[in-house]
Design a protein around this nucleic acid. Structure first.
Lengths: 270, 270
DNA sequence: GAGTGGTCTAGACCACTGT
DNA sequence: CAGTGGTCTAGACCACTCC
């Protein structure tokens, strides 16, 4: 009945223990023994050692770079996202005086980083609505949509903090030509203020949260190991007229992100 | 610059396309060609084919069972959890008439399944608070805690829908001895009503959402492939006195769960 | 016991990173 | 170019499932 462990699992567990214990040579940034060396030491064949290293990589403990080596990963800072608070704050900001919008970026609230510590990258395109978008917005398939792709990073580090695809109905967004211009990003005051310039007020935001393994492209951009998990956030903004006016699809690195929601409850009558 | 794809990736993609297209032999429940056969057909060595199949398993498309075969997975029903609505509803139920509580289980609301389609399993134990629990509840390390482990399933199917670990301060829970008795579960009216019997009203619930790869044990219990992602939900209940009175740690199968939260926004002044 | 996936080896050769 | 991970092979043997 003993659950026998494969050799590669045993080796992976052994190394994981060393890392957890902080043994010299197994501290963050240190380079692990090379695969060839362990083979020479008789720890197993190359395939076996590689399986152990791959397991550690999938668990986020080490990072393997071809031609470079295998290193113990430094724990990246945890990102806590309080969307509820953020949405409320963002709307208030958009409705307030212009000087507040200049000094308080929406991105900073998102990431908890300073104003000059975040770079915003944006590329816009116009695409026809596919079946999914047409259902979300309640428009015909083929309706032109403004597709805005964003990603944020810290200066000097190409690692993205999140990958965002945002969609608006093109005809609606075009009522203010500035909204079609990616060079206006980051827009002070965020999406709430953008939409307010074309007479739209957001009444409610619905978040849907799912998870799956990162694709290779996502893993590269977010700086996480392939095979690790991402959080998928679908954010639907509904106007005071009851129309879906914006939909965003956000990909977040699972291992270093926590989403928080707070649900206040009505008190029972005394 | 051509991003060359390994042979195993190419094979996996080819099979994934067949599955997506619904080709005969690649429909849900169908058995995939055996590894030995593909080797005989010259599609690659056993290691290569196995890597392709493993990739498909990690992506949730197929399930491999040793000694049995590799089959195309049936898409399990997607579970949508609206916690916000649920928390509000659950509190209202607990404050209302007893007959409502008998007829409306909290679990059913959770899973969207019928009353007689859900089995509830509960085991209770008393443990000393570790550092994490002591911080969450604001009690000393070593304080006795009531640890309640739950899992739900559909009759005849050992697959769990979720794995729940719930914690209460033992001294507090003991004010109603029924709360220490696992045979009283499932408790009509849920945790809100349980706590109301000892004079506690829940004022606010905070959800924290993270993700990571499933452990082997979780994968087995939830019926998901090892290496796939789970959603971790930490649920903190705060009483009207401002104390943390319950903390639950919920593990959900990532690939078939979606969490939804809705954030209503205050209207701008006219 | 037949069938089928899982682990392991020993070694060839490829592809990327850095000097 | 040297160093280091990634892919692939051919085949032996193990472990689990189902009959």
């Amino acid at each position: 009945m003993a659950p026998k462990t494969p050799q590669w699992r045993g080796l992976a567990d052994e190394i994981a223990r060393e890392i957890a214990a902080g043994t010299a040579g197994y501290r963050p940034g240190d380079q692990l023994p090379q695969i060839r060396d362990l083979v020479a030491q008789g720890k197993g064949s190359k395939t076996t050692i590689l399986a152990a290293y791959k397991a550690l990589e999938a668990e986020g403990l080490v990072s393997m770079i071809r031609g470079h080596g295998t290193k113990v990963r430094k724990r990246p800072p945890h990102q806590i996202r309080r969307h509820q608070q953020r949405y409320v704050w963002e709307k208030k900001l958009a409705g307030g005086p212009a000087e507040d919008r200049q000094n308080n970026g929406v991105v900073e609230m998102d990431t908890g980083l300073d104003h000059d510590q975040v770079e915003c990258h944006a590329t816009f395109s116009v695409i026809p609505a596919d079946a999914e978008l047409s259902e979300r917005f309640g428009v015909d398939v083929g309706t032109l949509m403004l597709h805005r792709h964003y990603w944020h990073s810290t200066p000097g580090d190409p690692t993205a903090l999140s990958l965002i695809d945002s969609y608006l109905i093109h005809e609606v967004a075009a009522r203010n030509p500035d909204l079609l211009d990616s060079s206006k990003e980051p827009w002070p005051g965020g999406t709430h203020h953008q939409l307010s310039t074309i007479g739209i007020e957001i009444d409610r935001i619905d978040d849907g949260i799912r998870t799956r393994l990162a694709t290779q492209a996502e893993a590269r951009k977010l700086g996480i190991p392939v095979g690790s998990a991402v959080i998928l956030l679908g954010k639907t903004s509904v106007s005071t007229d009851g129309d879906v006016v914006e939909y965003s699809h956000v990909v977040l690195p699972g291992e270093r992100t926590e989403l928080r929601y707070s649900v206040p409850l009505e008190r029972w009558p005394q």
